[in-house]
Amino acid sequence: MNKNIQRCGISIQTMGVMMVLLGVISLGLFSFDRAPGGGGAAGKDSAASVRAFAEVYKVLKSPRCMNCHPSGDQPLQGEDSHVHTMNVQRGEDGKGLYALKCSNCHQSKNVPGLHTPPGNPKWQLPPADMKMVFQGKDAHELAKQIMDYNQNGHKNKAQLIEHARDTLVKAAWRPGEGRKLPPLSYPAFLKAWDAWIGNGGYAPGGH
């Protein structure tokens, strides 16, 4: 089984070294001593990490997450993840363009009723210089991407852990009327996310 597990790319290794250095500071600053994981010291249990990511992956590939992490420069919509009608574009900052900015329709909270725009104060796509594509990525690719400081919005592990607590991520579990929830509950997702990262953020085998 372990044969199928690959270590993440060089950048992650580099990051691992950095984490050793920065981790002390992080833990000191953010009290991550209670942080997550498979109970042991971070970065040790690659099998547990990969198991956890399998759960995480299901959530990331659900429409609630993937629809705003498209492979193209347009958001997706609906349970079938079709391209957002209206020709909505990412824009440089990920917040849409001109008269079709995200916040022109998406409010700070869900609009009541079926087929109304879901809302969140931070509603947006990843920006053009950091697209964080989920669509079309297999588990291996997606895990590597998320752990890659240069592809994940410049987040270290602690910040990644924190990101799962972000209001925009949480919005997936408040999808608005008529929309399906992600396949895991939010606490179950957090647990898997933390276990994945806490155990080293390993990527499952690629093809």
Binding site: M86, N87, V88, Q89, Y98, A99, L100, N104
Partner: peptide, 10 residues
């Protein structure tokens, strides 16, 4: 393309 991007919501 800009016009398509701006005006397709109307």
């Amino acid at each position: 393309a800009d016009i398509d991007a701006a005006m397709s919501g109307n």
